[in-house]
């Protein structure tokens, strides 16, 4: 009986691995093509696809340089915005969600419902209104206009509300209160450590979204030295009559590789965090 079960599990396991392998190819092939194209010349790219890298990486990079593209600075700019946005989003959203989950107060229901409604507002449109509004404060062409609104990220609050509800341990919080910890201290020392896996998960999503978001930055940032990485890459495409596909792909790859590395570094914490969470009851 047990042996039978093992065999069927093994067969199942084989098919699962097969499925995973196929899925992996489908998933990574386009990413691979993008990276390979960064090593190919513009005309090679125009002539068709190749799975093997070519030898034009350097000449593509020279084209990038000749266009006056300062990739390291763009990288630093993107990093500043994405990191600040992530920290603010994660911290303040968890704070807000904890306030909603952990406390009873008048208007709480209303607040929570309003947050849900806020999630559903389409943002592409309000960007013009937002620009003209920021202009009044002199905050256009300024990172603050990109970063500060994340204090009120309705979607992130929604995420943490759902998340905290499922991991909240009232006993620990009560114990903290008996020990005389302040309410904010309880949030920082008890709630936050428990919620670290969630914080990392949402943090990564926020970071990626902020890193790749170029529409808002495009509208709000004007001076070249404040350009984010995606914006710099897009400027290459601005020269519509001279498509330097190789250089564009190299620029794309250059903007993708840092985020892949960052992602690989931090996704380890998700794994650890989740097993940590699994210990608790």
């Amino acid at each position: 009986m047990i042996k039978n079960y093992r065999i069927s599990t093994n067969i199942l396991r084989f098919f699962i691995y097969l499925f995973l392998a196929v899925l992996l190819i489908i998933t990574l092939l386009p990413v691979w093509l993008l990276l390979v194209n960064a090593t190919r010349s513009t005309l090679e790219i125009q002539q068709g696809i190749s799975l093997l890298p070519s030898q034009y990486t350097l000449s593509n990079y020279k084209i990038l340089l000749s266009k006056g593209l300062d990739l390291p600075r763009g990288f630093l700019n993107s990093l500043t915005i994405a990191a600040a946005t992530t920290v603010i989003t994660v911290y303040f959203s968890m704070l807000t969600a904890y306030g909603i989950v952990g406390y009873e107060f008048k208007g709480k229901k209303f607040l929570y419902n309003s947050i849900l409604v806020l999630v559903m507002i389409p943002m592409q449109l309000s960007i013009i209104g937002f620009y003209q509004y920021m202009s009044r404060f002199g905050l256009t062409d300024n990172y603050l206009s990109l970063i500060l609104p994340s204090v009120a990220s309705a979607g992130a609050v929604f995420f943490f509300k759902q998340y905290l509800e499922s991991i909240m341990i009232q006993d620990l919080i009560d114990a903290g209160r008996i020990d005389g910890a302040s309410e904010l201290g309880i949030f920082h020392r008890i709630m936050f450590p428990i919620a670290v896996p969630g914080a990392f998960t949402l943090g990564i999503f926020t970071f990626v979204a902020s890193w790749n978001n170029f529409f808002n930055a495009y509208i709000l940032i004007t001076s070249r030295q404040k350009y984010t990485l995606p914006m710099l890459v897009q400027t290459l495409r601005g020269d519509v009559y001279r498509h330097e596909y190789g250089a564009i792909y190299l620029g794309l790859a250059a903007s993708v590789i840092p985020i892949i590395i960052i992602y690989f570094l931090f996704s380890r914490y998700i794994v650890n965090g989740i097993s940590m969470g699994a210990v608790k009851e």
């Binding site: 303040f92 959203s93 704070l95 807000t96 904890y98 306030g99 909603i100 952990g102 406390y103 009873e104 107060f105 008048k106 709480k108 607040l111 947050i115 500060l148 609104p149 994340s150 204090v151 009120a152 609050v157 309410e183 904010l184 949030f187």
Partner: peptide, 15 residues
Amino acid sequence: RINHGYLFVAPFIIG
């Protein structure tokens, strides 16, 4: 504690 509820959500509301 009720007041604290407001405090926790205050940054969001202000933002």
